[in-house]
């Protein structure tokens, strides 16, 4: 009962928040709504007994990612409304609506459920973070390390791209720009 109430409540809030994110004209509103939606999603994770994931969701998404966006937005002019020329809005909703319908059909229909067996069953009597840790550092050790390296690379890339020499482009540098620089 409690689960159902929580589920519907969270669902309503999440959908509303994400809808604001997608439809709002103000980038600041969008970001705030997105952060709120992220918190709600961590709520689903807790409901689903994935405590560790929920915590990570709050820390990484609501904490790190959203903070990153917030800092990033300081470079852009966010007080103004975002000017967008949206062509054929009906097509957008049609495409998305159809996709949603098809996805729902695909998911509701008992297509795959009979064919699934648990690879790493939950261990009884073990807390979720502990279980996650066991799997993560045994079976998924290599992907975990790779993900770590990837994050490191992404961090370096972010620093380089948005680093000191922000008046120069590293990726789209044209030859004349170099020459001009050389002339200086």
């Amino acid at each position: 009962m409690f689960e159902a109430i929580a589920f519907y409540l969270f669902s309503a809030i999440t959908i509303a928040m994400f809808a604001i994110t997608v439809l709002s004209k103000n980038a600041l509103y969008s970001m705030s709504a997105l952060a709120a939606g992220m918190v709600m999603i961590s709520g689903f994770f807790f409901l689903l007994d994935a405590d560790f994931l929920g915590v990570v969701q709050i820390i990484v998404y609501t904490g790190a990612v959203m903070a990153l966006y917030a800092f990033g937005m300081m470079f852009f002019d966010t007080t103004r409304d975002v000017k967008e020329e949206i062509r054929a809005p009906k097509l957008v909703f049609l495409l998305s609506g159809l996709s949603a319908l098809l996805l729902v059909i695909a998911l509701v229909a008992p297509i795959v459920s009979d064919h699934i067996t648990a690879l790493y069953p939950m261990t009884e009597g073990v807390e979720n973070p502990q279980a996650v840790g066991i799997v993560l550092f045994t079976k998924y050790l290599v992907p975990f390390e790779v993900a770590a390296v990837m994050l490191l690379v992404a961090m370096i890339a972010g620093i380089v791209l948005a680093g000191k020499k922000m008046d120069e482009s590293l990726t789209l540098k044209v030859e004349e720009e170099f020459q001009e620089k050389g002339a200086k």
Partner: peptide, 19 residues
């Protein structure tokens, strides 16, 4: 890309190998 996704979804539903 969305159109492509739609087509793939349709194909997945109508030609699902597991069904």
């Amino acid at each position: 890309m969305g159109v492509g996704l739609l087509i793939l979804l349709l194909a997945a539903i109508f030609y699902s190998p597991v069904r």
